[in-house]
């Protein structure tokens, strides 16, 4: 009598993937922890390349195109938590949205003239950025800060 042995079972497992998965997972976790991604930062970029004063200031080249008469916004800070902006006949107290509206009116009237923000020495930087943003909202593109010199 022929004794029938157990059937041979073939495991078609291919190459052992476990070390690969381990390494890949380690790499993945490392990249997730070590990488710094685009955060919540963005930038207000000045394009005031030629201006008599300000951050983008540089004298116009000889024979260069004369620039338009700039719009100067004077910014003061009557109290540490408020700012006051003035240009022309317009005077606005601590309201960036209203400032943007008024500046948009000027933009329609004057075109894209250079804007020079002329702040007092005690005005907080965050208020200047508010004014800067209002000018950007009004579609001005050449914005700079006045300096004492």
């Amino acid at each position: 009598m022929k004794i029938q042995g157990a059937k041979k079972v073939h495991y078609d497992s291919g190459p052992n993937m476990t070390p690969l998965v381990d390494v890949v997972m380690v790499i993945l976790i490392f990249l997730m922890l070590a990488g710094s991604f685009a955060g919540a930062d963005h930038f207000l970029v000045t394009q005031a390349a030629y201006s008599r004063t300000g951050a983008g200031g540089a004298p116009p080249p000889p024979g260069g195109i004369p620039q338009d008469e700039p719009l100067e916004i004077r910014v003061d800070s009557p109290t540490p938590d408020r700012f006051h902006a003035r240009f022309g006949q317009v005077s606005i107290d601590n309201n960036p949205q209203q400032l943007a509206t008024q500046l948009a009116t000027m933009r329609d009237k004057l075109g894209d003239v250079p804007v020079i923000i002329s702040p007092g020495r005690m005005v907080k930087y965050k208020f200047l950025i508010d004014v800067y943003q209002s000018a950007l909202q009004a579609k001005f593109s050449k914005i700079s800060f006045a300096t004492a010199r």
Partner: peptide, 10 residues
């Protein structure tokens, strides 16, 4: 330096 950008947070 003509190009100046102010870094702000969204």
């Amino acid at each position: 330096v003509k190009n100046v950008a102010f870094n702000t947070s969204k």
